[in-house]
Nucleic acid binder design. Sequence first.
DNA 1: TTAACTTGTTGACTTAAGTTAAGAAGTCAA
DNA 2: TTGACTTCTTAACTTAAGTCAACAAGTTAA
Lengths: 190, 190
Amino acid sequence: MKSKILKYLSKYTEITEQLENAINESAYFKSYKKGDILLKEGDFSNECYFILEGCIRSYFVKDGEEKTIEFYTEEEVVTPSNIGKSTPSQYFLECLEDTVVNVGNPALENEMYQKYPQLESLSRVIAEVILTKQQESYTAFKSSTPEERYLQLLKTRPNLLQRASQYQIASYLGIRPESLSRIRKRLINK
Amino acid sequence: MKSKILKYLSKYTEITEQLENAINESAYFKSYKKGDILLKEGDFSNECYFILEGCIRSYFVKDGEEKTIEFYTEEEVVTPSNIGKSTPSQYFLECLEDTVVNVGNPALENEMYQKYPQLESLSRVIAEVILTKQQESYTAFKSSTPEERYLQLLKTRPNLLQRASQYQIASYLGIRPESLSRIRKRLINK
DNA sequence: TTAACTTGTTGACTTAAGTTAAGAAGTCAA
DNA sequence: TTGACTTCTTAACTTAAGTCAACAAGTTAA
């Protein structure tokens, strides 16, 4: 299990023995069942998650509708935006499948950053990489039609379509379930 | 001038004397004229910018159309996503007004991070804050209609509508200029 | 000072997403 | 096993964005 995190981090930096020790030292796991809620709207949050196995969905409720913000799968990091803050969460985190995560928390992390400055450097690099990727997604979303967005999702994360229900995917694409259904039909007839 | 950066950074951390020295030591300014291009598609990039005065727009060209990615104004940071990398830029950076920036570069920054680890810690915090803000914008965009997006822009960045032309704003909102024109008309009649 | 270009508006038409309602198929639990 | 619920699809209709074309006003440059 531990090796999965090290494998992930090694994409960004050389894993020194010291860093490996730091990671192993702080490793702490949790398992959740399908349907479990990790965070509710209004909750305070003190944990972030690195997914080892499974799928987590973030969403909020607007006009009585669930709006999916993001799907997180293996080897991705879920950081509640209110983590360590005294502000309540604006959204929910829900397991779409049985899920195993590595749990982190700000206090531990700050302690680790003190002990192993290389780790904070790594966090900065990863935050910047994720920021860039997200900027690209956002831009692509803006300049695409719903149909193009769906095709893009098919291409880049095909397994999501097996793991999430259609109305969850629809709100992730910024459209209604009926529209997604029609888009799929349209594409089959092409 | 320098104080503007320190004021910005002080929102995130205590400015120690050491940090102040670090910033002043690396301060390096440039001025651009309205219409100047700071970065072209295909270019390599080795600079990032902190805007002291003025406005910068990032955009790319798709199907012969300029698609605005983002507008950056005073006290915001513009970091080309290919900075320090050997990949060409996917987009342009253009000054919408006469603009004064503080210039940074990866080599200098890494050097500074070595000398002043507090600075790297600060960069991590800022990257995480920007990431969270961007996630929120992205989510709001997805779950809004074009009209709602325009109203939101009016509310949060009203001065942008004076600083950028309507077709630039339109593509930023993910719609065509004609549609923005109609939305504005619709809203006046309300 | 004209001619060319840019910017924003408007109109007519097309296209596709939103809305509402109904129903089919599958899942789950009493 | 039956009834309730969830998920997805379909149809009819409404709404608004996209497309194409024309034009007015302002700006720029020869």
